[in-house]
């Protein structure tokens, strides 16, 4: 009786003999094909079959090709889209820069016009820093050395009052914006001539006209200008426009909110009024 290991060995031997036989046949075929071209006629005949098979599969192949082209073109489109988006972002930035430059140019032209109306007692200033606190609103401005700017001078923009100089250095000054909680300006209602004091509320561009009795005739959209009391500061600089008038039941005074006409954050260049100027410095027609 043969042992199992002998059987396995016998099977293996049988397998490798067969393998060698087939390997030899395959090598012979390779040699014949390479040297004698024995199988070339058969291959030529079969190539027609290949063509036929390929022809029958052509629609499927074409569909698969279209499928792959669809995805490759989609990838290309996504890439192109990305490039266009980048270019558009760049263009948007350039456009915004252009718009900002144009606006600044207009502001500078307006300031120049303002200065031409009264050549004396004015000094151009440029904002170099601003407060980032909502409760403490100031601007640090820079100006030409030896300019005669002093504490208390008004700083104005093209539309009206910005604030008041509170401290001066060699070529810099700190300007307290009118909307600062500690700021107050003597104003006059342009329509009625009523004089009062406007205070900053510590909020963006928001002022309040305080201690105005309820009987006083003040309406929404009334323009407030500097009163010029004391003779040091000019009369007629627009300060703000009344935005709401309401009655406070707990006191005898009206609650009058005023919106500042000039936005200190909108521009970088302003004018400091270092002396008395003419009343017609600001054309009130432009305010609206």
């Amino acid at each position: 009786m043969p042992l199992a290991s002998n059987t396995i060995k016998g099977n293996r031997f049988h397998f490798y003999v067969k393998f060698l036989v087939y390997l030899t046949i395959a090598l012979c075929f390779v040699f014949l094909d390479l040297n004698q071209r024995t199988f070339t006629p058969i291959k030529d005949k079969l190539s027609s079959f290949d063509v036929a098979v390929n022809g029958s599969f052509r629609p499927f192949k074409a569909w698969l090709d279209d499928f792959s082209i669809y995805f490759s073109s989609k990838v290309e489109l996504v890439r192109e889209n990305q490039k266009l988006k980048t270019a558009q972002t760049y263009s948007d930035v350039q456009l915004q820069k252009l718009a900002a430059t144009e606006k600044r140019l207009e502001e500078l032209e307006s300031l120049l016009e303002l200065r031409e109306q009264s050549a004396t007692g004015m000094q151009a200033v440029t904002v170099i820093a601003a407060s980032d606190s909502p409760y403490d609103q100031w601007l640090r401005v820079k100006y030409k050395k030896n300019a005669s700017i002093k504490s208390g001078d008004y700083v104005v923009g093209t539309k009206g009052l910005i604030g008041q100089v509170i401290s001066v250095e060699e070529d810099q000054a700190v300007v307290r914006v009118v909307s600062d909680q500690r700021a107050s300006v003597y104003v006059q209602v342009l329509r009625t001539g009523f004089r009062a004091v406007v205070f900053g509320r510590g909020k963006y561009n928001s002022l309040e006209l305080k201690f105005v009795p309820e009987e006083v005739d003040i309406k929404v959209d009334d323009i407030l200008v500097t009163s010029g009391l004391g003779g040091r500061y000019p009369y007629g600089i627009p300060v703000g426009k009344v935005s709401s008038v309401s009655t406070d039941l707990t006191s005898n005074f009206s609650r009058i909110l005023v919106q500042s006409l000039e936005d200190p954050n909108a521009n970088n260049s302003f004018i400091a009024l270092t002396g008395l100027t003419g009343d017609d410095l600001f054309s009130l027609d432009k305010l609206d």
Binding site: F29, F39, S47
Partner: peptide, 13 residues
């Protein structure tokens, strides 16, 4: 090998 038009015997090998 025949259908692919390649050298006959190479794939068999």
């Amino acid at each position: 090998d025949f259908l692919g038009g390649q050298i006959v015997g190479i794939h068999a090998l």
